[in-house]
């Protein structure tokens, strides 16, 4: 039994330019203590999916489907109940550590806020626990940091504080939305270490949203690939890197800078860009950018099904078979 089960999740936005279908019947699971990476290009619905889980989207969004957290259907809960779940059972870490902390409150106050809110802690206990949390995420001199303001910390330190706030109540699921994108590479490694360490230490599951496949290979157990609002492939991380079945996944992997491939000239790109989907379509949304696409791809919606000997992939012509035929 998975900790988080997402079934048929769709998100529609009403915008001035008409409706936008940001997430189209997404299905995926996150198991207890598992690190699941949600990958895809910018604009393919990763963040929207993550925010939709606990009802954090703007009022112009309509969310349908089923989000089950350990037996509770989150989409059916009223806002007041969701507030109790946010931060306590499901915690978020966002992309922008520089702006995600309140500039006029001390670090101690901000971590304390979460503890007071969800753990009903008061007085000295709050400060003691906050210091423990800072130590847990690898911030030296936690006692002194508690009294400091966000501007006195570097970006990496701030992201650690954000993580400390996220784990303050030992949530069952941490949603990390591109937690390392705004940071430089050495700091990234430190932050990923902290996340891994937390998972081992506290048993929390992590839904890691990223477009950095290096990060995925580094920390994820399983990978869910999204494209234009649809889940197009999911698998455990080794199988995905070894046998990418969807042409899009393959394209993503090929686009990763690799010295071995630099010989034949530069980086490979996927031509075109992510389309804006307005209505659920009967075609494969990747067909326009896919070199393997045929008339079947343009008229029939592929299903997310495991192909013989492989993992689930939403494609009429998954790669291993085709490659086998060609070689």
């Amino acid at each position: 039994m998975s900790l988080l089960t997402v079934r048929d999740l769709s998100v529609r936005f009403r915008t001035e330019d008409g409706p936008v279908l940001a997430v189209d019947r997404a299905d995926f699971e996150v198991g207890q203590g598992e690190v699941v990476a949600l990958v895809g290009e910018s604009g393919c619905g990763k963040s929207v999916t993550a925010l939709a889980l606990t009802g954090l989207l703007a009022p112009n969004a309509t969310v349908t489907g089923n989000v089950d957290l350990d037996g509770t259907d989150l989409l059916a809960l009223p806002e007041s109940r969701l507030r109790n779940i946010r931060g306590r059972d499901v915690a978020y870490i966002f992309q922008e550590p520089m702006t995600s902390l309140n500039p006029v409150l001390t670090i101690g106050r901000q971590i304390g806020e979460v503890l007071r809110r969800h753990r009903s802690m008061r007085g000295r206990a709050v400060a003691r626990r906050a210091a423990e949390l800072l130590e847990l995420v690898g911030i030296p001199l936690p006692q002194r940091r508690l009294g400091e303001y966000p501007h006195q910390l570097s970006g990496g330190m701030r992201q650690r504080v954000m993580i400390a706030m996220a784990v303050a109540c030992l949530p069952r699921l941490i949603v990390a939305d591109e937690p390392t994108t705004a940071l430089d590479v050495t700091i990234q490694a430190g932050i990923l270490d902290v996340l891994r360490h937390l998972r081992d230490e506290t048993g929390t599951a992590i839904l890691l949203i990223t477009h950095d496949l290096g990060v995925v290979a580094d920390v994820a157990d399983r990978v869910v690939v999204m494209y234009a609002g649809r889940v197009v492939e999911h698998s455990n991380v080794d199988a995905l890197f070894a046998h990418p079945s969807h042409p899009y996944t393959r394209g993503l992997l090929d686009a990763v800078p690799n010295p071995a491939r630099h010989a034949d000239g530069g980086l490979r790109e996927i031509p075109g860009r992510v389309p804006v989907v307005r209505e659920p379509s009967d075609a494969c949304t990747f067909a326009d950018r896919c070199s393997y696409a045929d008339s079947l791809c343009r008229t029939q919606r592929p299903l997310l099904e495991p192909w013989p000997g492989g993992h689930p992939v939403r494609c009429w012509h998954p790669l291993p078979a085709r490659q086998g035929a060609l070689i």
Partner: peptide, 25 residues
């Protein structure tokens, strides 16, 4: 602002948002 969104994601209610995050800023 991001920190208000972060506070909402942390479970803060309207009163906390107004009193702790918006008014002081």
């Amino acid at each position: 602002m991001d920190f208000v969104a972060a506070a909402v994601a942390g479970g803060a209610g309207d009163a906390v948002l107004l009193r702790r995050h918006i008014l002081p800023n």
